[in-house]
């Protein structure tokens, strides 16, 4: 009887030690769910969700503090994928949040005074310029977040919708009439 208890206690101790060691050795620093959510978000860093960037929004979703339908650039598709990941029902985008076509910001060369305010506002450092020098937006890196629009004192930045080119053109969904069968 006693030996049985000792054996069981011994096994318990050994296994406990192994588990304890493993929890230290294989410790996961960040919440892996945040990474997964962040991977789905479009990284425009626009703040339309009410959080200062995509990562904070992802963290809020992971904590259960934010809804999954607050990201207009991600669109319905993004909401659907978040719902799939989190095992909840997809829902339409939140009120007042409308997905817009992908755009990039463009600076009017004749109006820009070189104040650098937009450079400070750009979340992805996509604006090149220096004080009293003309600023230019690197279109390839612009996420279309529109955060540079409000700080501009001379309103010289506007958004241009990215046009479809031969390289980015997509085959359309084939639409054909299907005949009713009897």
């Amino acid at each position: 009887m006693l030996s049985a208890i000792l054996v069981m206690a011994g096994i318990g101790l050994v296994l406990g030690a192994v588990l304890g060691w493993a929890s230290i050795k294989y410790r996961v620093e960040d919440d892996p769910l945040v990474e997964k959510i962040d991977a789905i978000l479009p990284q425009t860093q626009c703040g339309q969700c009410g959080f200062p960037g995509c990562k904070p929004y992802a963290e809020a979703i992971a904590r259960g503090e934010a809804d999954i339908n607050k990201c207009p650039p991600g669109g319905e598709d993004g909401v659907k994928r978040l719902a799939e990941l989190l095992g909840v029902d997809p829902k339409p985008l939140g009120e007042g949040l409308e997905p817009k076509p992908k755009s990039v910001a463009v600076i009017d060369d004749n109006t820009c005074i070189g104040c650098t305010l937009c450079i400070q506002a750009c979340p992805v450092d996509a604006i090149v310029g220096a004080a009293k020098q003309l600023h230019v937006i690197v279109a390839d890196q612009c996420t279309g977040c529109e955060l540079c629009l409000p700080p501009c004192p001379v309103d010289c930045i506007h958004m241009e919708v990215v046009k479809e080119g031969v390289a980015t053109w997509k085959w359309r969904y084939p639409v054909h009439a299907i005949r009713r069968v009897a």
């Binding site: 962040d38 978000l41 479009p42 990284q43 979340p123 996420t143």
Partner: peptide, 9 residues
């Protein structure tokens, strides 16, 4: 694009 934007941000 998203990966690039994330890295730059």
């Amino acid at each position: 694009d998203a990966d690039q934007a994330r890295a730059r941000h």
